[in-house]
């Protein structure tokens, strides 16, 4: 199979598999993530989508922005639906009715992945279906109007954990889903960010070249929910990586590798400051929250570095 060299010039000559005319908000991170994932894939792809912004906005009543076979079933079962499709494919292939090599990709937001779709995702990974599950993580149920999810970061203001006199935003830390998925002992789990497109594309290519269940968690800024500007999706995701809020790493067959180490680790406030959902953290009485958040980020980064260092023979 011909592979496209990894330059933007060559990638731009490929046919885009997600078209314009989708109804995602201006400046949304999710279509950027999907576009990059689809650009990385070679050959025929079949996708499934959990309910979420991406699903409702790319497939509104009879119009679809996808140029690949795509299926939506319900909120909780993108992984189970794709498991069925993949199983049918294996059966048809055995019967000699399909000769193509097809790759399967499921897309879900953090709500459809961390919370509602978690059991079906866990089941699909345990059964070992040959699929790549992509979670575009924007850190809340943005589609229904910014309700907290288990991916919502500590301290964030959402409509179901509003910052005010009673609570200072979300009082719990976020779930570490990438590590939870890696704990399923799947061959590949990784974290990526659209700001580092080369890293993202390489990870998708690697994931698709591996047989079995794969998981990728990709940061996807949402200017409505993050209360930020419409033009800063890439800038914010870059800050997320540089502050180590969203470390880029992969866990391949149990071996952790940090794929991007910032030259200088920026303070977490650089990532929080441009976002209105964290505005209240900068009030003097909430200083402890900034400290606690920074400590959690440092702890995770150090544990990754340690795990990554152990890979040397």
């Amino acid at each position: 199979m011909a592979t496209t060299p990894l330059t933007l010039k060559e990638l731009s000559k490929k046919e885009g598999l997600l078209t314009s005319g989708h109804r995602m908000c201006a400046g949304c991170g999710a279509p950027i993530v999907v576009k990059m994932v689809l650009l990385a894939a070679e050959g025929p792809i079949v996708a499934a989508n959990a309910t979420g912004c991406l699903e409702v906005s790319t497939c509104i009543s009879d119009y679809t922005a996808w140029k690949i076979p795509w299926i939506h079933n319900a909120f909780e079962n993108a992984a189970a639906t794709l498991s069925g499709v993949e199983t049918m494919y294996r059966s048809l292939k055995k019967q000699g009715k399909i000769s193509k090599d097809i790759k399967f990709i499921a897309f879900g937001g953090d709500g459809g992945t961390y919370d509602i779709g978690f059991q079906s995702l866990s089941g699909a990974m345990e059964r070992g279906h040959d699929m790549l599950y992509i979670c575009y993580d924007n850190g809340a149920y943005m589609n229904t109007g910014i309700q907290r999810s288990s991916a919502t970061p500590f301290g964030a203001d959402t409509t179901t954990c509003p910052a005010g006199s009673v609570i200072p935003g979300k009082t719990q830390q976020r779930k570490n889903l990438t590590k939870i998925m890696a704990a399923h002992d799947i061959p590949y789990a990784a974290q990526a960010s659209p700001s580092h497109w080369m890293d993202l594309v390489k990870k998708v290519k690697k994931a698709l070249s591996i047989e079995g269940p794969k998981f990728m968690n990709i940061l996807s800024p949402c200017n409505r929910g993050w209360r930020s500007r419409t033009d800063d999706a890439i800038t914010l995701s870059r800050l997320g990586v540089e502050t180590c809020y969203w470390p880029l790493y992969e866990i391949e067959n149990g071996v952790t590798k940090v794929t991007f180490k910032p030259k200088e680790k920026k303070p977490l406030v650089d990532f929080l400051k441009p976002q209105g959902r964290f505005k209240h953290l900068f009030a003097p009485e909430n200083e402890w929250m900034l400290k606690k958040f920074q400590e959690a980020v440092d702890k995770e980064w150090e544990s990754l570095l340690k795990a990554s260092g152990n890979e040397q023979p």
């Binding site: 731009s12 000559k13 314009s20 201006a26 659209p194 497109w197 999706a233």
Partner: peptide, 30 residues
Amino acid sequence: CWMYCPDMAVNVKDGKMVGFNYDYCKGCGI
């Protein structure tokens, strides 16, 4: 601009940026 456009509204021809597709550009400014 082409890679980061959420709306696939940057026109590229033979690997070169040639302008915008204003039919679809939502003006996010990324």
